[in-house]
Amino acid sequence: MPTVTQPASERLSLLTKVALMYHEQGVLQPEIAERLHISQSRVSRLLKEAVQIGVVRTIVVPPAGVHAALEQELKDAFGLADVVIADVDETETGLLSALGSAAAGYLETTLTGKDRVGISSWSSTLLATVEAMTPRNTRAATDVVQVLGGVGRPNVQVQATQLADRLARVTKAVPRYLPAPGIVAGPALRDALLAEPYAQELVQAWDDLTVVLAGIGSVQPSPLLLESGNALGEEELARLRDLGAVGDVCLRFYDTDGAPVVSDLDDRVVGIGTEQLKAVPRTVGVAGGERKWDAIRGAVRGGWVDVLITDSRTARYLLGG
């Protein structure tokens, strides 16, 4: 850093006086010039000099609930495009609300109006996100495209389509649905479903997505999720755990390092493939809570998400704190 020459004491006194009047007393530059009988351009030069020599120093004091430094540290540690951290809440309901509000705020400020948004299957976190979004007067996205069929019992699978519909409504986008189960009995049935004309159009649309909004699933689903029927069965989950799986994004499972876990499930998923998913410019993962720590860590290690929206405890865990 170059050495800054200090001005003479008389000039330093004037410079300090100008800085105090402007920064602490709130006196505007024209009034300072009038009071001190100097030109306004000289006032401006003195204020710039006060910054250069360190008489005036700018600091940023984050308000409560803002975690800018922690977000930056997490971005740098995992090479993420962005991180949004919500304050932790020990209750499941409170955590969902905090994550949903944080994710809604992120989407409302970053969707350009030209984005083509993919949304994965129903989850409580994504539902909280969409419910927290404020309907726009202007279009926030051109299309909302379902990238995964419904998961769980048949009477629950329809929730995936309903979620896509709700996001399309708040963004004033055109909804594009995948009214099919997310997992089927075998690859032949999967291929038959995806061969339908409407499904073929969706598969092609997945190549053009600019954003995907996804939850990060755990192989240890919550009791509430299991009770709702919106999860894989315990036998299927046990097989995945035996293979080393810790979590999934859009039912594409990975291990603790984020490496894909290969299983027969891959050929039975009616939804976006791993290569298509990772080719999307921005995948936004929304997840938090101790139960999902291993799943979230695998997701950021393996590049399954580009943007992470999580809670402060999870962020510190990921950083080893």
Rank of each mutant, 00 (worst) to 15 (best):
V170Y: 03
A287S: 13
Q276E: 12
E275W: 02
T274Q: 12
G118A: 11
G113A: 06
V184N: 06
F253G: 03
T210Q: 10
R35L: 14
A86T: 06
N230D: 14
A245P: 01
D191P: 00
V246T: 08
D255N: 14
A68S: 14
R176D: 06
L74S: 03
A299I: 06
A128Y: 00
E196H: 10
G65E: 10
D82S: 12
R169S: 12
D248A: 08
D255P: 03
L80Y: 02
E71N: 07
L96Q: 12
R42Y: 12
R166H: 13
I183W: 00
V286T: 09
A64M: 08
L318M: 08
P135W: 13
L224R: 15
A128P: 00
R301L: 09
V84M: 04
G105Q: 13
G182F: 02
L318R: 00
G233Y: 04
R282I: 08
V147G: 03
D266E: 15
S39V: 08
V151Y: 00
D143M: 06
R166D: 14
V174A: 13
G273A: 13
V174K: 12
V66K: 08
L318H: 00
L20M: 10
L265D: 07
L28E: 14
G273R: 13
D207I: 01
V151R: 00
V43H: 01
G289K: 01
V286F: 05
